[in-house]
């Protein structure tokens, strides 16, 4: 008999209860649950996720638990405005607040979302990090993240040509 609450054990050895609904938003936990139908007492080990990060993930799942399934497509296809919220735009106000955290935390959540396979959360984190790269020149990106430039000017010229770069590099 499926209980309404699921126990998981985090990397720092905490046991955390979460609702079945939230647990099932993680494809990873969902398939573990499906594999162990009937034997539901044991806590699911999540050795790659700390309790701190898992709580963040649950926060996000709680806010998004009633999001419509991604395939109510045909209806929205006809509406022009749907095309605008693309790529790195974060439109949900709650989400904007949620990603307003240290990048270290963001990266931890990103890795957890990847491991737990929570698609919406993973995309949100990717978008947020992509916003750090958006509209920046290669110099600005290197500067921002302390990356060594291992390309010669000739390489860059060739690459610009190959990319058909139309934008200025100033």
């Amino acid at each position: 008999m499926a209980s309404e609450s699921i126990s998981v054990t985090t990397s720092d050895d905490q046991t955390i209860q979460l609702s079945r609904k939230h647990a099932q938003m993680s494809q990873t936990i969902n398939s573990m649950l499906e594999d162990s139908v009937g034997a539901d007492q044991e806590a699911i080990p999540l050795p790659n996720v700390s309790s701190e990060v898992l709580k963040k993930v649950i926060d996000w799942c709680t806010h998004h638990e009633n999001d419509p399934a991604p395939v109510e497509k045909v209806k929205k296809l006809n509406k022009k405005r749907e095309y605008k919220a693309k790529n790195s735009t974060i439109s949900d106000e709650w989400d904007k607040n949620f990603v307003n955290a240290e990048l270290r935390v963001i990266v931890d959540i990103l890795l957890a979302a990847n491991y737990l396979d929570v698609k919406g959360l993973f995309e949100l984190m990717c978008k947020h990090i992509a916003n750090e790269l958006k509209g920046k020149t290669p110099d600005q990106i290197r500067e921002r993240f302390g990356i060594q430039d291992d390309l010669t000017e000739e390489d860059k010229a060739a690459m610009r040509k190959a990319w058909g770069a139309t934008k200025n590099d100033s």
């Binding site: 920046k136 020149t137 290669p138 990106i141 060594q148 430039d149 291992d150 390489d155 690459m159």
Partner: peptide
Amino acid sequence: DIAQCSLVSS
């Protein structure tokens, strides 16, 4: 933006 990123490093 991807074209810009490609010029960051090899």
